[in-house]
């Protein structure tokens, strides 16, 4: 499920890099530069949205797929 999303984030990053590399070419015609700039801004926004900024708690996963908040690693050592 998240596979597609993260792949798309990576793709967006690499497309952003591509756009930048092209945009940084001095000989690029202005209309193309504008198009790349617009695409770059769009990708930038999308990338930014992809990076979620909510801190997460560690979840304990059970075999049946249910989860519980993991309380921590105190206790016995290996």
């Amino acid at each position: 499920m998240a596979d597609e999303e993260k792949r798309s984030l990576e793709q967006k990053f690499s497309r952003l890099e591509d756009s930048l590399a092209k945009l940084e070419d001095d000989k690029l015609p202005l209309d193309q530069a504008f198009a790349l700039y617009q695409e770059g801004m769009k990708l930038l926004k999308e990338c930014n949205e992809e990076i979620d900024r909510v801190e997460k708690q560690v979840l304990l996963l059970r075999e049946d797929g249910s989860t519980d908040v993991f309380e921590g690693t105190t206790g016995v050592q290996e």
């Binding site: 801190e55 997460k56 979840l59 304990l60 989860t67 690693t73 016995v76 050592q77």
Partner: peptide, 24 residues
């Protein structure tokens, strides 16, 4: 859940990306 490994992994992972969802 009680070993050194999970502690180390959580330390590193949280330091690098506190927004990452970790399941144990």
């Amino acid at each position: 859940p009680t070993g050194a490994a999970i502690r180390d992994i959580l330390d590193v992972a949280r330091r690098r990306n506190p927004y990452l969802q970790i399941l144990l």
